[in-house]
Amino acid sequence: MAYVLHPTGNKGGGDPSHAVIQLKPDGTYVLLIGAMDLGQGAPTILRQVAADALGVPIEKILVSNYDNLLPLSVSTSGSRVTLIDPHAVVNAAEDLKRQIREWFAQQHEANPEDVEIEGETVYVRGDRERTVMTMEQVAMGAAWGGGYEPASLIGRGAWQPGKYHAHDPETGEMPNVGAISFGAALAEVEVDTETGTVDVLRFAQVWEVGKAINPLLVRQQINGGYCIGAGFALTESCYPYFPSVEYAPEKMGDYFMPTFEDYPQQMIFGIEEVPHPNGVQGAKGFSEGSASGPPPAIASAIHDAIGVWITEFPITPEVILRALEAKQAGVES
């Protein structure tokens, strides 16, 4: 069994993200944010966050995140996107709504504070019947002008979890302005003590993620993290490689990623939600942590099975046999 504390975002602060949301002439929105997707679904959850912040259906939001011309999101790393980027998106949405209120007030000779945006309907409070417009009409008016003043309705937002503070050189302390996600991993293994092979029979992993913005994506990251962690634990080796440095893999066939058959007979996953004060709707990142649980969980299950603590990865069959031999030699001496 293993317990994982996974820091999400830069603990010392700094590390901002930026977002832009543009209202298009047809009343849809484009979210521009340089949050690279590696398959983890960043554009999906940011689209969800934008839809919530603007109070519109998700279909109204298009995300563009594949270009270095886009607003900076620093990087897809450190499980930071889910913690940080939603703030930038929410800020951009608020900025856009402020601009919409100002433009709308100008057209109807009203105060911006009196302009009400209810999802895709805009009106002046107290004068709804005369002033009400759909967002599509607002967008069209602002974009094409005509009887209205043209305006570039483009919201901008930036956010970082506090200013950067270096750690104290004396104590190593630093302010924790990010968030920490918590995971537990449980492995059941069978070890063949003659050949050294390890079979992970069942594996369970539970993560506390603040708020699962998209539970299917959270589930994929938990189960996917198993594969990456289990490969690291049992089969995959990078420098100095296995069994030693001169045996670098030459082709893909020399590098041993887990296959379907290496996958456990039973996989159990769980999601716990305790909203985090630093996250939008309490959400925080966790994904890389799901690859951190399997190696120690598998190693401790191996210890439970054969009574030897293995302290190197990958735990190849050879590592197991050598550990068993050393144990035997210790008993005999």
């Binding site: 003659e194 490689y241 030459e250 020399d254 190849t316 069959p317 046999l321």
Partner: peptide
């Protein structure tokens, strides 16, 4: 021989178990 997949030591050790089996 020793290669990316295993060492000669392992091949002999596990090989013996495999032949018995």
């Amino acid at each position: 021989i020793t290669d990316q997949r295993a060492t000669a030591w392992y091949r002999k050790k596990a090989g013996e178990a495999l032949v018995q089996r």
